[in-house]
């Protein structure tokens, strides 16, 4: 721990270095991590659970888990961002399953979807996030619908391949094959262009 680290110095640190500080319970380093990835995390949680309040709870729990179990982060297995978003995804799917098993239905409120006030000023990073999102969505839109459907049901819906096979009335092998073709296509068309830096860190 360097007691002389200024906020500006923290801002310049890579995620992996911030995680080292977070493991030592540095709240300022955690705040920087949250500011970098909180928006993407909340957006993902919202996409999965479909409710702003539950998305807030899910994101809060996921980040507290990062704070409390940062030591479990393994830089050799991927980036801090994908690790964090993986936790968010798992928590959100858990919440979805809990809601499906206990409550008659999710408390969906149409008005609550409009949680972003019109004209609200976006920070720089939000503008970038939104632009990136549009580009990724555009590229995903090029996937054959049959591939994006099974990928979406698995990743955002939390369904297993056998549940998806039942749902769509098709053989297991077909479902898994479409998942593979879809992921390979995403990787081929996008990973090089958008995630070149990150993949080079992930891939040996």
């Amino acid at each position: 721990m360097n007691p002389t680290l200024t906020p500006e110095a923290l801002q310049r640190l890579a995620d992996e270095d911030l995680m080292t500080l977070v493991e030592r319970k540095d709240a300022d380093a955690f705040a920087v991590l949250y500011d970098r990835h909180g928006g993407a995390a909340y957006s993902l949680a919202h996409r999965i659970v479909g409710d702003p309040e539950v998305a807030e709870d899910v994101t809060q729990e996921a980040f507290l888990s990062v704070w409390r179990s940062g030591a479990r982060f393994d830089a050799t297995r991927g980036s801090v961002r994908s690790w964090t978003l993986g936790i968010v995804r798992n928590r959100a799917i858990d919440a979805l399953r809990r809601a499906a098993s206990s409550a008659p239905k999710l408390d969906l409120d149409d008005d609550a979807v409009l949680d972003t006030k019109p004209g609200e000023q976006l920070t720089d990073s939000e503008a970038i996030r939104r632009e990136t999102s549009l580009r990724v969505r555009g590229a995903l839109g090029e996937l054959p619908a049959e591939q994006s459907e099974v990928i979406g049901l698995a990743y955002f819906g939390g369904f297993t391949h056998s549940e998806i096979a039942d749902m769509l009335g098709m053989p297991l092998g077909t479902v898994k094959g479409r998942m593979r073709l879809g992921l390979e296509k995403i990787r081929a068309t996008l990973a090089e262009r958008m995630g070149a830096k990150r993949s080079s860190e992930v891939l040996p």
């Binding site: 993407a40 957006s43 961002r81 999102s133 996008l190």
Partner: peptide, 17 residues
């Protein structure tokens, strides 16, 4: 394959927490 999965969160509508 994970590098493709890691792109999926970026495909959702981005919201302000």
């Amino acid at each position: 394959l994970r590098s493709a999965v890691d792109l999926l969160p970026a495909s959702v509508e981005q919201r302000t927490p």
